[in-house]
Design a protein around this nucleic acid. Structure first.
Lengths: 230, 230
DNA sequence: CGGGATCCGTAAAGATACTG
DNA sequence: CAGTATCTTTACGGATCCCG
């Protein structure tokens, strides 16, 4: 977006010039969710071209919303929100809450994407209720396209959560199988996970304790508790 | 923006597809401020082409954010926010508050525009403290471009506030003269009006009561009370 | 492999003019 | 008053390539 193209002294217009260019809000959502690296950001915005991502990062740095630092031996770039950037969280969340409330459920569930879903689940999984050893959970989506059907979340105590789309080779503690649509609906908060399991739409196999406590450790979208209006 | 082009089931992304196209947020600000007619909206977004305004109105209607009705004998179109549209106020306000807080004052004051300022002042003027008769206030900006130097606000009890850029012919109760920059800074809340008057940056001539009570009836930006960070 | 830059075709927006 | 029509300019998407 051309600098100053709205030509209005209004704070809404000035903010919109920075924030309302294509992909920018979604990119900020990624930062708010904790991503800091170029290729980490790319996983959250897979359809954004790297050229445009690079351009947006420069613009946001210029606008004082994030900083860029070289870290590590290889000189890898790390991007972090400044205070001004962190204060954009209410803006992004207000937009998300409105979307959750007013955008039709079925319209939302037209954009299923196993990779994005798993990437989000990796981020929101809560390892704390899990046993203090490595836990491996396999997710299977029979209706997803090839190479998107099977995923593994590997929870290593102290090392966070890893997402794999190829078998990491460890024993699996819990198998989760569902339609991609069902799992996404649960993630979005449209449907309680207990209900989906009771109705056989999500099938759990393996460790009973992990299975019965699933709602305590599987993370949902941070907007899952916002109720739909329509 | 192409429909569904982000291809993400996230509510932030879905909302951003609707809200983050060019001019849309500023247009919503106009609706939230109370505009309902095509040419009334144009005054608030003077640099937006009518073609694009027309297109955006259709898109927002399609998205369920506003309705369009023909009213009056001449079949004039009236646009009104739906409930979904009214619930966008927190989004627009969050963006505005961030802008007020983080966008540099001097950068903001580079986009001076007497017409926009007067249009905003017309909207926010509070007639209630004024005497119960017609009041005419003349504003003069010596540094503004020709045809933007002199403005009249005509307050008719029961009939609201009118803005004129040509002399409406009535007797003037109060004359206000200032730099456009000073008046805009006051409007934005950067500087108390009392201070600007005391320092001679705003000069009031005419009705003493009107002059001394100016801060009770002159409206400021609704974001004027948000403090700057930088 | 991480972090980009380049080139080119398409799609959206700006400027200006005009109309029922 | 409430918009269209047309032409030019800019932004974006997609593919490819580069470099430490």
């Amino acid at each position: 977006m051309a600098e100053g193209s709205y030509k209005q002294f209004c704070p809404v217009a000035m903010a919109a010039e920075i924030l309302c260019s294509r992909w920018t809000i979604i990119l900020l959502r990624e930062f708010i969710s904790g991503s800091t690296r170029f290729n980490e950001l790319r996983k959250g915005v897979p359809r954004m071209s790297p050229a445009l991502l690079s351009q947006r990062l420069k613009e946001l740095e210029e606008a004082g919303i994030l900083t860029r630092e070289k870290s590590g031996a290889a000189g890898q770039a790390e991007y972090r929100l400044t205070r001004a950037g962190r204060e954009l969280e209410p803006v992004v969340m207000a937009m998300g809450a409105w979307g959750q409330r007013w955008i039709d459920k079925d319209l939302m569930l037209e954009e299923l994407d196993a990779q994005l879903l798993m990437w989000d689940m990796r981020r929101n999984l809560n390892p704390q209720p899990l046993p203090d050893r490595r836990c491996v959970i396999q997710f299977r989506y029979p209706d997803a396209p090839k190479a998107m059907k099977v995923w593994w979340l590997v929870v290593e105590p102290g090392a966070g959560v890893d997402l794999c789309s190829v078998d990491p080779g460890h024993d699996v503690d819990l198998y989760v199988a569902a339609d991609l649509r069902t799992m996404t609906a649960v993630w979005m908060g449209y449907e309680p996970i207990r209900k989906a399991i009771a109705e056989g739409k999500i099938i759990l196999t393996g460790d009973r304790k992990l299975a019965s406590s699933i709602q305590s450790w599987i993370g949902l979208s941070s907007l899952a508790k916002v109720k739909q209006a329509a």
